[in-house]
Design a binder for these strands. Structure first.
Lengths: 222, 222
DNA sequence: GTTGACATAATACAGCTGGCCGATAACGCT
DNA sequence: AGCGTTATCGGCCAGCTGTATTATGTCAAC
């Protein structure tokens, strides 16, 4: 592989190798040499694409968030033109939880991200930014669902939004095998059912298009 | 401090020093030398109490779980003789979330615990065991609350238990400053309110003592 | 006062780490 | 063909790591 390499693609390949190392051995073992070995390149070559370990980790983490957002976007596209907000939230939650290999890899990267954010200002700011953006998106969705009569008007949008985001707490329960994927899905559906348990007479009122929703530009990390 | 030292007490002192290091610099910086420095003892002396770094971390993590359980037990004692199950669950959740310094320290240890459990069989088994035990306790509580008429009988105990445990997902949101402590408390109360939203006519039926509840022997770790 | 057990400390050591550099080779361009 | 650029690689380094070993200090019991 001589001259002219797609740097972006190369970096993504390395990032995925890093994911595998993190998934198998933990973030502490994500050393330059170990990742290089996993990616099938040399230690020195890796440094051509990432000038420091920190840069490598940062890229791999952002890439994980990005891929999660893409997965969510793809699933949302499958829902058709005007999806029910319940289904939108369901996709976002389910695709964020470690319920299948891809989601598990990115979920673990996010977990490492958060843990590092606790004692690194820069990482903290970035992680916070991503989550805040995700939260805003969910809150807008909730508010619109209330306006459209899908959710009872006496519900507090902010509180309901926070509760929805908190459901990412299933991540730990799933990873540790405390709850089965089926149970987690049932619980998510149960919560959404309760949230949307409202006489849908407002359906007629909601003649207006339910507001465009940009979704694939950010994602919650937990 | 010559002969005969209380090993247990010494270990706990070291463990708390380790907590501080973890909180300030992350678990990766919890090296023998750094912890010894924080604890004000020499590197060699630390090795007298922990023969390996792994032993030190294990103890510090178990100690964190233990202290969390004690905190919960203390708060529960303040609730009096026959506390409302809603208040019991509230205490367990609130004392597990990083809402005050003590809880934050143990919460971060738990987070590190879980992350290491993902790629270490032994740690996985221990973490899982603790969480399963905590889950069982919550489920018994929920079932009893249903029997006592505090929770609507058409609720599925297992699912409601899982949802309660998932609320520990607020940990991430709190640590990253995405939600305020007030908002998290409001959301927890909102969820509990919804769970216990049931005509309390069953109160008279629940003449039997609401079953003894051992609480201070284990705790959820997230 | 001597001995023995224990706490504490200091040091040595092999291993791995991230970062850095120079060598080599493969391409594109002129 | 010649040159410059870039990719890849292996080796080197200082630093830190966990662990093991050894030395020193401190008390209690006899």
């Amino acid at each position: 592989m001589p001259k002219q390499v797609d740097h972006r693609e190369r970096r993504e390949t390395i990032a995925r190798a890093l994911w595998r190392v993190v998934e198998r051995r933990g973030v502490a073992h994500a050393t330059l040499r170990e990742v290089a070995r996993e990616a099938g390149i040399s230690h020195g070559s890796l440094q051509h694409y990432f000038t420091s370990r920190e840069a490598m980790l940062s890229f791999a983490m952002d890439f994980a968030s990005e891929q999660t957002a893409l997965r969510v976007g793809r699933r949302l596209a499958e829902l058709g033109e005007r999806p029910h907000p319940r289904d939108v939230l369901r996709v976002m939650l389910i695709e964020t939880l470690p319920l299948h290999p891809d989601a598990r890899a990115t979920s673990r990267m996010s977990a490492a991200y958060v843990l590092e954010a606790l004692h690194d200002e820069d990482v903290h700011a970035r992680a916070r930014g991503g989550l805040v953006q995700g939260r805003d998106m969910v809150e807008r969705l909730v508010r619109q669902a209330i306006a459209d009569g899908h959710i009872a008007p006496d519900r507090d949008p902010a509180t309901e939004t926070d509760l929805l985001l908190a459901l990412t707490g299933f991540t730990t329960l799933l990873e540790l095998g405390v709850v089965t994927p089926e149970a987690a899905l049932a619980a998510v559906d149960r919560h959404l059912h309760g949230l949307f348990a409202h006489s849908e007479h407002g359906q007629a009122v909601a003649a207006l298009p339910p507001t465009a929703m940009p979704v694939a530009d950010s994602e919650t990390r937990s």
